[in-house]
Computed example of a mutant assay.
Amino acid sequence: MLHSRRRVVSVGALSATLVLGSALLFAGHAPAAPAGPRASGGVRTPPVAGVLDNLGDSSRPASSLPAPSRTSAGRAVSRPVPPGAVPRPVSPDPIGVAGGPVTVRYTFDAGVRRPIVDVDGRHLLRPLGQNGGRLRLVPQRGGLAVAYPDRCALPRERDCPRAILEGIRDDNLNPGRRPLRYGASVLMTHGDLADGANVVQKGYSVGGMSQFKLQVDHRQGHPSCVIAGQRARIYRAEPWIDVADGTWHALECYRTPNRLFMIVDGRPRASVPVPPVLAIANTEPLRIGGKGLAQGNDQFAGAIDDVFVRIGETIP
């Protein structure tokens, strides 16, 4: 949905059930109509705002165990788990990349009674929470946006509510060396800021995993685009712009063969050179609002809308 420059108004604690179907839906890209339900006579009913039910609410402490991974020869090795991440099972399958142009876009406009899928109904996102963290769908100019838990002020971070949206493994979202565009619209105030606030990411920048990420980090409200290959170096484009001003901002990251651009509200604001050989491919799912559920997950606070990933698309 289109973003507007106004503060999202919460609808309160209007609880509703997110119908996610059977377990088979969670195991693959099950088709689902992205549009809202229709009333009798074919008239479309308004999307329903409210609280999203988590697929399990965990209060387990963050794991410090190494996450198993695999070398190109298929041998299991141990890699450190990034802070805030949760170890995932090793997949025996080789890591693939997108074979052609790919476009995935989430508007969140179907309402809490429908699965959260992209506009084509093929890429599922699951609400996950810890310590009572919940996501809400809130009204935003005729549609809905995702509101995240308020910035936590508890004395111990391990007790803070955390909540994210997470997909499943999808190697079609690995760009490899292809042109890549990804981003979202965000609404934040300075009260939502912290040392880390991840908006969209796939993968991690440590452990030789590779990553693309959009974040709003530190207390200055600066957005930044981050990509990393399997080597240790991280590339970040960060403009000196404060987007935590209580209005909606469209943030976009654009990777060309040799440069990474940060685009704010349609205007390029920062860029850094990147090597053409840098490839991004990992087994991690797409995540929105944090890099996991464990302590130190760079939890986002505020609201997110219009998330997209485009692979193989160049700027005209």
Rank of each mutant, 00 (worst) to 15 (best):
V119R: 03
A67L: 01
V11R: 08
N282I: 03
R60I: 13
P239V: 14
P257G: 08
A250M: 05
H222S: 15
D298W: 11
Y235T: 01
R70Q: 15
Y106K: 00
H190M: 05
A62E: 02
G133S: 03
P94V: 12
R158E: 04
A281F: 08
D192Y: 10
P101N: 03
R7Q: 13
V186E: 06
A13S: 14
A27L: 13
S22V: 15
E166I: 09
P101I: 07
P276N: 09
G183T: 06
G208D: 05
S224C: 05
I164A: 10
D195P: 04
G56L: 12
R6Y: 13
G121Q: 02
V243L: 04
T189D: 11
P175R: 05
Y235L: 06
G292H: 01
R177A: 08
R158D: 07
L52Q: 01
D195F: 14
P223G: 07
G74A: 15
S10L: 03
P37F: 13
P268T: 13
A163E: 15
S271A: 11
P285L: 14
A153L: 10
S4Y: 09
I315M: 10
V226L: 09
P175A: 03
Q201D: 00
Y254D: 04
I263N: 12
G191E: 08
R162K: 00
V112Y: 02
L154I: 09
A39Q: 03
R158V: 15
D150H: 10
D298V: 13
S59D: 09
R267C: 01
A33K: 06
G99Y: 06
Y254C: 07
V8R: 10
I234Q: 14
R136V: 04
Y106D: 01
V97H: 01
V43Y: 00
A163P: 04
A13N: 03
